[in-house]
């Protein structure tokens, strides 16, 4: 009997809070059952720094800077199926609530003109990723195959979604599991 090839999954958090990852861990002991069928590539769980070829990429958080774009593109290149998880990845979420503010004015106020700032300078180290003028959901930057809304989606929702996906069914969250908040 040949061992079934494991499904390779990568996960990451961009402009998010890791809350979706935490919720994922809330599937608790079902993680063991999951690990019988999947293995993890790049993920906060493995500390692998770059994503290799994967079956599924799960991305938490929206896109707020140049590095987010690069990481998301890497995921899109490497993953057959790309999943946006959580309100930030799906809608921009909390970070996108800065979108009505002018970025230049913000940087200027924080680093140059705010009371108490002396000899201020806007950080310009090339190591730092530049912020985009607005925060965007993932689907505005790359093609996204599936979305799991929620802040965060519940462990049950994530479990149901992965169960469907691994079984080859079109994922479907019904009332109760589907939530935007």
């Amino acid at each position: 009997m040949t061992e079934r090839k494991k499904v390779r999954i990568a996960t990451t958090s961009l402009a998010g809070c890791f809350g979706c990852h935490t919720s994922f861990l809330d599937i608790d002991e079902r993680l063991f059952a999951l690990l019988d069928r999947v293995e993890f590539d790049r993920s906060p769980l493995t500390d692998i720094k770059h994503c290799g070829p994967c079956d599924i990429g799960i991305v938490e958080g929206g896109i707020c800077n140049a590095e987010n774009v690069e990481v998301l593109r890497e995921f899109r290149r490497q993953c057959r199926i790309l999943v946006a998880i959580g309100a930030c990845a799906v809608t921009g979420g909390l970070p996108a609530q800065r979108n009505h503010l002018d970025l230049g004015a913000c940087l200027s106020e924080v680093y140059l003109t705010e009371l108490g700032v002396v000899n201020g300078q806007i950080p310009n180290d090339p190591e730092l990723p530049l912020p985009l003028d607005k925060v965007h959901p993932l689907h505005e930057v790359v093609k996204v195959d599936y979305f799991i809304p929620g802040c965060p989606p519940s462990a049950e929702a994530i479990w149901k979604f992965l169960g469907d996906l691994l079984a080859g069914r079109t994922p479907h969250l019904g009332h109760g599991l589907m939530q935007y908040d």
């Binding site: 309100a87 809608t91 979305f147 809304p149 802040c151 935007y180």
Partner: peptide, 30 residues
Amino acid sequence: HFCPSCEQSGNCMLQALGYELGVMTAGFRH
């Protein structure tokens, strides 16, 4: 529409319709 920070979340008809119709994403550019 940022549901997680909206105090009407759960009482909102737009959100409830999204659930009813299986809207997982706005799809379009915001």
